[in-house]
Amino acid sequence: MIDDERIRDRAELLPEELAAGSDDPEAQAEAVLQDSDDREDYRESAPDLRIEHRTADEAAS
């Protein structure tokens, strides 16, 4: 379960999210946070799976 305070903090939409609109910012925030938590949990449960994290500048090089 995601902490209500985290949801409220994330429910303040980013500019690109505001431009796209949202019928339910809190539900959107909960989904984003759940996805983030799931990805973090998966990374820890599969340390042999290497996920490369690069910036756009690094990828262009």
Score class of each variant (00 low, 15 high):
Met1Thr: 11
Met1Trp: 10
Met1Val: 13
Met1Gln: 12
Ile2Gly: 04
Ile2Cys: 10
Asp3Gln: 08
Asp3Tyr: 03
Asp3Ile: 01
Asp3Thr: 01
Asp3Gly: 01
Asp4Ile: 03
Asp4Cys: 02
Asp4Tyr: 02
Glu5Gln: 14
Glu5Tyr: 02
Arg6Glu: 15
Ile7Ser: 07
Ile7Asp: 12
Ile7Gln: 04
Arg8His: 06
Arg8Ser: 09
Arg8Gly: 03
Arg8Asn: 02
Asp9Asn: 05
Asp9Phe: 04
Asp9Leu: 13
Arg10His: 03
Arg10Glu: 14
Arg10Gly: 10
Ala11Gln: 02
Ala11Met: 07
Glu12Gln: 14
Leu13Met: 15
Leu13His: 07
Leu13Asp: 06
Leu13Ala: 05
Leu13Val: 06
Leu14Ala: 07
Leu14Cys: 01
Leu14Ile: 00
Leu14Asp: 03
Leu14Pro: 00
Pro15Trp: 03
Pro15Leu: 08
Pro15Met: 08
Pro15Gly: 00
Pro15Glu: 07
Glu16Arg: 02
Glu16Ile: 00
Glu16His: 13
Glu17Tyr: 02
Glu17Pro: 10
Leu18Lys: 15
Ala19Ile: 10
Ala19Asp: 13
Ala19Gly: 10
Ala20Ser: 15
Gly21Arg: 01
Gly21Pro: 11
Gly21Ile: 05
Ser22Cys: 12
Ser22Asp: 04
Asp23Pro: 05
Asp23Cys: 00
Asp24Gln: 07
Glu26Thr: 00
Glu26Gln: 05
Glu26Val: 01
Ala29Ser: 09
Ala29Tyr: 04
Glu30Val: 00
Glu30Gly: 05
Ala31Asn: 09
Val32Arg: 12
Leu33Ile: 15
Leu33Asn: 01
Leu33Val: 05
Leu33Cys: 11
Gln34Cys: 02
Gln34Ser: 15
Gln34Pro: 06
Asp35Tyr: 09
Asp35Ile: 06
Asp35Arg: 14
Asp35Trp: 11
Ser36Phe: 11
Ser36Glu: 15
Ser36His: 05
Ser36Tyr: 11
Asp37Ile: 15
Asp37His: 13
Asp37Met: 12
Asp38Ser: 11
Asp38Gly: 04
Asp38Leu: 14
Asp38His: 12
Glu40Lys: 08
Glu40Cys: 01
Glu40Asn: 05
Glu40Leu: 10
Asp41Ala: 15
Asp41Phe: 10
Asp41Gly: 08
Asp41Tyr: 10
Tyr42Trp: 14
Tyr42Ala: 13
Tyr42Leu: 14
Tyr42Pro: 00
Glu44Tyr: 07
Glu44Asn: 14
Glu44Asp: 12
Glu44Ala: 13
Ser45Lys: 13
Ser45Phe: 10
Ala46Glu: 14
Ala46Cys: 12
Pro47Ala: 01
Pro47Asn: 10
Pro47His: 04
Pro47Asp: 08
Pro47Ser: 01
Asp48Ser: 14
Leu49Phe: 12
Leu49Pro: 00
Leu49Asn: 12
Arg50Pro: 00
Arg50Phe: 10
Ile51Val: 14
Ile51Gln: 10
Ile51Lys: 05
Glu52Leu: 02
Glu52Trp: 05
His53Ser: 09
His53Cys: 07
His53Trp: 02
His53Gln: 13
Thr55Ile: 03
Thr55Phe: 08
Thr55His: 02
Thr55Cys: 04
Ala56Pro: 07
Asp57Met: 06
Asp57Cys: 06
Glu58Thr: 09
Glu58Val: 11
Glu58Lys: 07
Glu58Ile: 00
Ala59Tyr: 12
Ala59Pro: 05
Ala59Leu: 11
Ser61Gly: 12
